[in-house]
């Protein structure tokens, strides 16, 4: 290889290199001008943005959403990890289920039944929120038990004393409904007595509730020869009748067990949307009554949400003596 040849080649190489550098520089230069609105952590809900553009007021410049301070630790993580989670996320979005469980401190089985219920709820795919209500006690193991379950729960306590069991249970349910109302939590509300046992598929079905949903429930008792089924009689998902376990009913009473129906929580905090009058003063203190009344009001809104024709029993209730 001759010297000239070599130097020629060198010049060639240099030229090439400089060209590359310049290209890269220009590329970087223009990348810099690309809009920075691509935040690392957030997506902007553009439709919402558009919708509110007129009414919105510029408050503060928003250079970039996210975490200020040092992102060292954040940027440390390899991009791949972020992307991985990103792609993983493509899973179905589910409706929230809000399970309300009143408890009774006189029930010797409370602790055990709470654990059993927690086991079931832990297996329900999220999102699920469990609202457990309890009368305020000096010492109670309810908090300890709930804490160990890993279920997302809210533990509400109340001070009032009750002598009547039914009134107390209703008060507890009301308290939970008040919580939902106050926080405007959205989801399908279900009252779960601790003595209930569930098929997991129940929770899949209940998610399809729009306004009101109902399903059959089997009451099991030890000494009777018979078992009792309460709930709707359906034609596909249309409710056409009810299985009644007694023929005399107060108008105030539901035709079914309280665990036999569920409803969309938004009727509590946004009743107008569903065509209900907002709470009258009389019912203001009693959300449960309101829900029951709303349930009565219009049966066309009730859907049987269990499997085909509401024929599959997915809830059992243990009912020992009578």
């Amino acid at each position: 290889m001759g010297v000239t040849e070599r130097s020629k080649k060198r010049v060639h190489l240099w030229k090439k290199a400089v060209l590359h550098f310049l290209l890269c520089f220009v590329m970087g230069f223009f990348t810099g001008f690309a809009p920075t609105g691509k935040p690392t952590f957030t997506r902007v809900d553009s439709s919402a943005e558009k919708q509110y553009n007129n009414s919105m007021v510029e408050l503060a410049p928003r250079p970039m959403l996210g975490v200020t301070g040092n992102n060292r630790s954040l940027s440390e993580t390899p991009e791949s990890a972020v992307e991985e989670t990103e792609s993983e996320i493509e899973i179905e979005e589910r409706k929230q289920i809000i399970v309300i469980s009143p408890t009774n401190d006189k029930d010797p089985l409370r602790g055990v039944l709470l654990r059993r219920m927690a086991d079931t709820l832990k297996l329900v795919p999220p999102p699920l929120l469990w609202i457990v209500v309890e009368s305020k006690m000096e010492s109670s193991d309810v908090s300890d038990i709930l804490r160990s379950t890993g279920v997302m729960y809210r533990h509400l306590v109340f001070m009032e004393n009750f002598t009547d069991h039914t009134t107390e249970m209703d008060h507890q349910r009301n308290l939970a409904l008040k919580h939902i109302e106050h926080h405007r939590l959205s989801g399908i509300v279900h009252f779960a007595a601790l003595s209930n046992v569930y098929h997991l598929s129940f929770f899949d079905h209940i998610r399809s509730t729009e306004t009101f949903g109902t399903w059959p429930l089997a009451k099991l008792s030890t000494k009777r020869k018979k078992m009792i089924i309460e709930g709707p009689v359906c034609q596909s998902s249309q409710v056409i009748g009810w299985h009644l376990n007694k023929l005399k009913m107060d108008t105030d009473e539901l035709p079914i067990h309280i665990s036999g129906f569920g409803f969309n929580s938004s009727i509590l905090w946004d009743p107008e949307r569903w065509g209900y009058l907002p709470f009258a003063d009389a019912t203001k203190q009693n959300s449960l009554k309101f829900v029951k009344q709303a349930f009565f009001e219009d049966e066309s809104k009730i859907r049987g949400v269990a499997s085909e024709d509401c024929s599959k029993v997915n809830i059992w209730q243990l009912h020992l003596s009578s």
């Binding site: 902007v44 509110y52 919105m56 007021v57 510029e58 408050l59 928003r62």
Partner: peptide, 15 residues
């Protein structure tokens, strides 16, 4: 009212 060295102003929130 904002001395932050931000660059783009995106009207975003309704106050």
């Amino acid at each position: 009212n904002s001395s932050s060295s931000s660059t783009i102003t995106v009207p975003f929130f309704r106050t």
